[in-house]
């Protein structure tokens, strides 16, 4: 009974977490699933988004502009990873590690210190919710609405000629080239897009908790990947709408599962191990069954 109570009490706050991390899950799904470009940059672009937003807001910038600035920064981080891969033909994971490690220094430079409080300033919630800025259900509704709008925009985007071309690059680069599609342009823009989504997630979290911390990205990639996998198990991924719905649903479900684990008495520090074990298991099942690898890399 106690466990259930703790869990139920945690629901609102973990729902909010879920919808915020939904952006990150979307930003992780795109490289892994659509571009066949397994990418770790999220681990750096997420705190980058938080740092940029917090530093900009602390410096007096409007929170909407600050969030857009974070989006741009994340885009550039993604572009950097993609460019390194395309130029130097290094493994995509290594490119991501290089960029996310370098971003650690960049983030501290941006904030001028390892963390940046923004308690005193108006954030996105203050601006959009006014007097109700501290009402949790409204915060959840606001972010859930933004997340849904983002997923719908992405769905429309991936149905345009440009978005279709981007999907072709991930599915079959040889064929894409033969159709006149530039692998470079679409990979850079696609990974950039993914970076912006992660950065927006970071910017939203920073504003919600009223501070950014350079370490806020630690483990976010695996959480996001776990969320994507959970979502795909729940809603599938055989159509574009499902593939885009999965990260959002998965992020929400994943943070509920985390909260349940906490309610059951696990330490927060145990969760990284559990998440890792879960992802490992989900990746291992298809390969043990001899099915195709769930994470695809380009030939």
């Amino acid at each position: 009974m106690d466990i259930l109570n703790i869990f139920i009490n945690l629901v609102p706050i973990t729902l909010l977490q879920g919808v915020i991390y939904g952006f990150v899950a979307l930003g992780i799904m795109i490289p892994f699933r659509i571009l066949s470009f397994p990418d770790l940059t999220a681990e750096g672009s997420f705190p980058l988004g938080g740092s940029v937003a917090a530093a900009a807001i602390a410096a007096g910038m409007h929170s909407v502009t600050a969030t857009l600035l974070a989006l741009l920064a994340g885009f550039l981080a993604g572009c950097a990873t993609a460019l390194i891969h395309l130029k130097l033909r290094l493994n995509t994971l290594l490119c991501g590690i290089i960029v996310l490690t370098m971003l650690f220094s960049v983030n501290i430079r941006i904030m001028g210190k390892p963390n940046q409080p923004i308690f005193a300033q108006d954030n996105l919630f203050d601006i959009l919710l006014g007097d109700y800025a501290r009402v949790l259900p409204l915060q959840i509704a606001l972010i859930a609405g933004l997340l849904a709008a983002t997923a719908i925009l992405l769905l429309l985007f991936f149905k345009t000629e440009f978005g279709t071309a981007m999907r072709a690059v991930g599915a079959n680069p040889l064929m894409a080239r033969a159709q006149g599609i530039s692998i470079w342009r679409h990979t850079i823009l696609g990974i950039g897009l993914a970076g912006s989504l992660c950065a927006v997630g970071g910017a939203l979290l920073a504003q919600n908790q009223s501070f950014a911390d350079v370490n806020m990205g630690f483990g976010v990639l695996l959480n996001g990947l776990a969320a994507v996998i959970v979502g795909e198990t729940l809603v599938g991924r055989d159509t574009l709408p499902r593939q885009l719905l999965a990260p959002a649903v998965g992020a929400i479900a994943y943070y509920q599962a985390i909260s349940l684990a906490l309610a059951l008495g696990l330490e927060p520090s145990d969760l990284k191990f559990l998440t890792g074990a879960f992802v490992l298991l989900m990746l291992a099942i298809p390969s043990m069954k001899g099915q195709r690898q769930p994470v695809k890399m380009r030939a």
């Binding site: 985007f157 345009t160 279709t164 071309a165 999907r167 599915a171 159709q179």
Partner: peptide, 23 residues
């Protein structure tokens, strides 16, 4: 062709072969 995409999506790509992809 691109396996995870539909027949008509593949045809649509081919119909714009060599032309810039638009929004």
């Amino acid at each position: 062709s691109a396996g995870p995409m539909t027949i008509e999506e593949n045809m649509a790509l081919a119909s714009r072969r060599g032309l810039p992809s638009r929004l």
